[in-house]
């Protein structure tokens, strides 16, 4: 079966790095937050004790920020500067457009059975939200994390009580990020009918032509009209690769759900 290319290898690489660092940050961060409970102690043991957990959290945080900077450079390098502002406002861009509002309303109508499905182009509105949520989350978590990296140095520039405030921002934003990924992002990537057991698009980079035509008719039609469809057709990845993707993906999901469930079950112990 033929596929349309949706993500370039570089973009998939970014997702892979984000995925791995996010999981490590979640595990070490939760271990740190829950170290007063039995479960948190177990988690820190996994990383070789509490001080090691702290160190890993800080270093992987730096790695994440580094990858974010590379991502920013990548964005700046891929923007078509001559064609501004139209080039970043097109349907291939992740910048929210006016159409997204209409599509989201129509989508809700479709969910309620009031009208037909909206005709999505390349990115649906919740996918754009997903991207910008991560963008904003990394700015906020990375920013506060960088300040908290060494409180002795940073308190030379800010009053010490600001650390109390920043610590809470860091904690709540991290909780939001984890809840969003473990509940919503995983649901979309694994449990929707079309994606059921697992959506491989972020790993193999392509989406089945028929599936794309059904889900995102405007995107496929646009490429057909431009005569560009032939250029983006790719072959499906080999079976062995797909097996690896599935095993890897499910390992991550199971690990994250383990964190989610235990964080939830132990939440009341944080208070006492």
């Amino acid at each position: 079966m033929q596929q349309i290319r949706r993500f370039t290898p570089i973009q998939r690489g970014f997702h892979l790095i984000l995925m791995l660092t996010f999981v490590i940050q979640s595990a070490t961060g939760l271990a740190r937050m829950y170290v007063g409970t039995g479960w948190g102690k177990q988690l820190t043991d996994l990383f070789g004790g509490y001080p090691n957990t702290l160190t890993i959290h800080k270093w992987v945080g730096l790695l994440m920020l580094f990858a974010f900077i590379i991502h920013l450079i990548y964005i700046l390098a891929t923007i078509n500067w001559r064609g501004l502002p139209g080039s970043i406002y097109g349907p291939d861009s992740l910048i929210p457009r006016l159409e997204d509002i209409g599509q989201s309303i129509r989508h809700v109508g479709w969910i309620l059975g009031l009208n037909g499905p909206p005709r999505f182009d390349r990115w649906a509105y919740w996918e754009k939200f997903d991207y910008w949520a991560v963008f904003w989350g990394i700015c906020l978590l990375g920013g506060t994390g960088l300040i908290l990296y060494n409180p002795v140095i940073s308190s030379r520039f800010i009053p010490g009580w600001a650390l109390n405030v920043l610590l809470w921002i860091h904690r709540i934003e991290a909780t939001l990020a984890m809840a969003h990924v473990f509940l919503i992002h995983f649901f979309i990537g694994h449990l929707r009918r079309e994606n059921f057991p697992m959506d491989l698009v972020m790993f193999e980079g392509g989406i089945d032509l028929e599936k794309a035509r059904h889900e995102r008719p405007d995107w496929v039609e646009r490429m057909e009209n431009e005569g560009a469809l032939q250029n983006v057709l790719v072959a499906k990845s080999t079976l062995s690769l797909r097996v690896i993707y599935h095993v890897f993906g499910f390992a991550i999901v199971i690990g994250c759900l383990y964190l989610l469930v235990n964080a939830f079950l132990n939440a009341h112990r944080l208070m006492g």
Partner: peptide, 30 residues
């Protein structure tokens, strides 16, 4: 401290309150 934590909490609860039902309803409808 009070206002920032509540601001962040509202952001947290608001995002979840919209997107959790949204995803499940999309999934059901599909």
């Amino acid at each position: 401290l009070f206002y920032t934590s509540w601001g962040m909490l509202v952001l947290l609860l608001g995002t979840l309150a919209f997107f959790v039902p949204h995803s499940f309803m999309v999934g059901f409808r599909e």
